[in-house]
Amino acid sequence: EDGINLEEIREFAKNFKIRRLSLGLTQTQVGQALTATEGPAYSQSAICRFEKLDITPKSAQKLKPVLEKWLNEAELRNQEGQQNLMEFVG
């Protein structure tokens, strides 16, 4: 629908959760960090719904690039050390 690749979103949601957990981050931490930079659309409950795919494809499509960018950045910081990650997450 609307050129939205559901399979891709499903895959990303699954990987997002795995990668988030491997960084040792909670949904709350991700939500707080993103709410600070991106606004309330990225709250803990939004992250939770995204991971469960309990949102419309359109919403998922909107969240995905922001979550992807944030997660990549978080992983980079983590490679530089846990301290850097925690500063990034705030």
Rank of each mutant, 00 (worst) to 15 (best):
E1C: 00
E1D: 08
E1V: 03
E1Q: 01
E1R: 05
D2Q: 10
G3T: 13
G3F: 15
G3I: 15
G3N: 15
G3H: 15
G3W: 14
G3S: 15
I4M: 05
I4K: 11
N5A: 07
N5D: 11
L6M: 14
L6D: 10
E7C: 03
E8W: 02
E8I: 07
E8M: 01
E8Y: 04
I9N: 00
I9S: 05
R10C: 08
R10H: 10
R10N: 05
R10Q: 09
E11M: 05
E11P: 01
E11I: 07
F12C: 05
F12M: 01
F12T: 04
F12D: 02
A13N: 02
A13H: 00
A13K: 01
A13R: 00
A13Y: 02
K14W: 04
K14F: 04
K14L: 04
K14N: 05
N15Q: 13
N15W: 10
N15H: 11
F16T: 06
F16Y: 05
F16D: 02
F16I: 06
F16N: 00
K17Y: 08
K17L: 01
I18S: 15
I18M: 15
I18P: 06
I18L: 14
I18F: 10
R19Q: 02
R20P: 00
R20S: 03
R20A: 03
R20I: 03
R20M: 01
R20T: 01
L21T: 11
L21Q: 12
S22D: 13
S22A: 15
S22H: 11
S22N: 15
S22R: 15
S22E: 12
L23R: 08
L23H: 01
L23A: 03
L23K: 00
L23S: 05
L23Y: 03
G24A: 02
G24L: 01
G24Q: 00
L25A: 06
L25V: 05
L25S: 03
L25T: 03
L25N: 04
L25G: 05
T26H: 00
T26A: 03
T26W: 00
Q27Y: 08
Q27K: 07
Q27F: 04
Q27C: 15
T28P: 06
T28I: 05
T28D: 15
T28Q: 15
Q29D: 14
Q29P: 01
Q29N: 09
Q29M: 06
V30S: 01
V30P: 06
V30W: 02
V30A: 05
G31I: 06
G31W: 07
Q32V: 11
Q32Y: 03
Q32R: 13
A33V: 08
A33L: 07
A33I: 10
A33M: 12
L34T: 01
L34C: 02
L34S: 03
L34F: 05
T35W: 07
T35R: 10
T35D: 10
T35K: 09
T35N: 09
T35F: 08
T35A: 13
A36K: 10
A36P: 04
A36I: 04
A36M: 11
A36T: 11
A36C: 07
T37S: 12
T37D: 05
E38I: 07
E38A: 12
E38C: 11
E38N: 09
E38Y: 15
E38D: 08
G39T: 01
G39R: 00
P40M: 15
A41M: 09
A41R: 10
A41K: 07
A41P: 05
A41L: 10
Y42C: 06
Y42M: 06
Y42W: 08
Y42R: 05
S43D: 15
S43C: 12
Q44M: 13
S45G: 12
S45R: 11
S45K: 14
S45Q: 14
S45V: 07
S45A: 12
A46V: 13
A46K: 06
A46R: 04
A46T: 13
I47R: 02
I47A: 03
I47M: 03
C48N: 14
C48K: 15
C48F: 06
C48G: 12
R49E: 12
R49Y: 09
R49T: 02
F50Q: 02
F50H: 01
F50E: 07
E51F: 00
E51Y: 03
E51G: 02
E51A: 01
E51L: 00
K52D: 13
K52G: 11
K52Y: 04
K52Q: 15
K52V: 02
L53A: 07
L53G: 15
L53I: 01
L53P: 03
L53K: 02
L53R: 04
D54E: 13
D54R: 06
D54Q: 11
D54S: 14
D54F: 13
I55P: 03
I55D: 09
I55K: 07
T56C: 13
T56E: 12
T56P: 10
T56Y: 11
T56I: 00
T56H: 12
P57K: 11
K58M: 07
K58P: 08
K58Q: 15
K58D: 11
S59N: 12
S59I: 04
S59Q: 15
A60C: 02
A60L: 02
A60S: 05
A60P: 01
Q61T: 09
Q61S: 14
Q61H: 12
Q61W: 08
K62C: 14
K62G: 06
K62S: 13
K62E: 15
L63N: 09
L63H: 08
L63I: 06
L63A: 09
L63E: 00
L63T: 05
K64P: 06
K64Y: 14
P65Y: 03
P65S: 09
P65A: 06
P65C: 07
P65T: 08
V66D: 06
V66Y: 01
V66E: 02
V66L: 05
V66R: 08
L67C: 04
L67K: 02
L67D: 02
L67E: 01
E68P: 01
K69P: 05
K69G: 05
K69I: 05
K69N: 10
K69R: 13
K69L: 06
K69V: 04
K69Y: 01
W70I: 06
W70C: 03
W70F: 09
W70S: 03
W70Q: 03
L71V: 07
L71G: 06
L71C: 02
N72F: 08
N72T: 13
N72S: 12
N72D: 14
E73F: 09
E73Y: 02
E73H: 09
E73T: 06
E73I: 08
E73K: 10
A74F: 10
A74E: 08
A74Y: 12
A74N: 04
E75T: 05
E75M: 00
E75W: 04
L76E: 12
L76G: 09
L76F: 08
R77C: 07
R77T: 05
R77I: 12
R77G: 07
N78L: 10
N78T: 09
N78R: 13
N78G: 11
Q79W: 05
Q79F: 01
Q79K: 14
Q79H: 12
Q79I: 13
Q79A: 14
E80Q: 13
E80M: 10
E80A: 12
E80D: 08
G81K: 10
G81N: 09
G81P: 03
Q82A: 10
Q82E: 13
Q83I: 08
Q83F: 05
Q83R: 13
Q83L: 08
N84E: 11
L85G: 12
L85K: 15
L85R: 13
L85W: 08
L85F: 08
M86E: 14
M86R: 13
M86P: 13
M86F: 09
E87H: 11
E87L: 01
E87Q: 09
E87Y: 00
F88C: 11
F88M: 04
F88L: 08
F88S: 13
F88W: 15
V89H: 14
V89R: 12
V89E: 13
G90T: 12
G90W: 05
